[in-house]
């Protein structure tokens, strides 16, 4: 007779232990990058609303500062008069607001500003973790893009086992699927497009650049995973040479 209760007790204990011991930098990195992405989205949505509201007060200013983070930072740190002076706004279509009507606007602005600060702190933390866990990758891609690739692969191990052609198309699964199924044009790059060397390239060069970048990333990640030497700066120089 099988003693199911004994097997169950043993399995629960073992599973708990395995779950506990499986927690690694991968989890820290994936949670950080997911939260950074989410904070970015939330802060942008809230800032859009804030711009509407603030435009009752000083609409000309919102038009002049398109960057959301800079917009929020400035309105929490400067008075209306100062902003008008600095931006050379002579006359406004907005109106002076009573302290009571201004208060909620400023309160929201302050909260959004602290969301941006939180995001900065998270980025710093992520950079530290990436630099000690996969410095070669992080040197080539920067912490954010490197973390995103790791997140999409699932772990550093999985990313290290991927062929370079798969790395190149991480994040473009939908387009790839469409291509295989319907014969639509194949995607040339996925998340990797965020890399400045690729995104700043001419459109016709992007496919080739992505391939070269994916090759280097693959070498970097394998070296990180197998705890090899630091070759990130060498890879980065080679990359910049080839993509000049």
């Amino acid at each position: 007779m099988v003693d199911f209760e004994k097997l169950r007790k043993k399995s629960i204990e073992l599973a708990k232990k395995t779950i506990r011991e499986s927690i690694s930098e991968d989890n820290f990195i994936i949670n950080s990058i997911n939260n950074i992405d989410e904070l970015t989205k939330v802060a942008n949505v809230l800032t859009k609303r804030l711009r509407d509201w603030y435009s009752l007060y000083l609409p000309e200013f919102s038009k002049k500062i398109s960057d959301n983070e800079a917009f929020v930072k400035l309105i929490v740190s400067r008075k209306r008069k100062e902003l008008m002076q600095e931006m050379n706004i002579k006359e406004s279509m907005g109106t002076e607001l009573s302290a009571k009507d201004l208060k909620p606007i400023m309160e929201i602005a302050l909260r959004i500003n602290s969301l941006y600060k939180l995001k900065e702190n998270l980025k710093e933390y992520l950079e530290q973790v990436m630099n000690s866990y996969c410095k070669n990758l992080s040197t080539i891609t920067g912490a954010l893009l490197g973390a995103k690739l790791l997140e999409q692969a699932g772990s550093l191990k999985k990313l290290a086992m991927m062929p370079s052609s798969t790395v190149q198309l991480l994040g473009a699964e939908k387009a790839l699927f469409r291509h295989l199924k319907t014969g639509a044009r194949p995607p040339k790059h996925g998340t990797i497009l965020q890399h400045p060397l690729v995104s700043s390239a001419k459109k016709t060069n992007r496919g080739r650049y992505s391939r070269v970048l994916a090759d280097k990333i693959t070498i970097a990640v394998k070296t990180d995973y197998f705890k090899g030497k630091f070759i990130g700066d060498k890879l980065k120089t080679e990359l910049e040479e080839r993509l000049k």
């Binding site: 169950r8 399995s11 629960i12």
Partner: peptide, 22 residues
Amino acid sequence: APQVTRDLVRLAEERNNIAPIL
């Protein structure tokens, strides 16, 4: 997948007819 199975382990603690295995 270890981190996916946390809920499964919790379930197995409540239900005598489940053993979670990684």
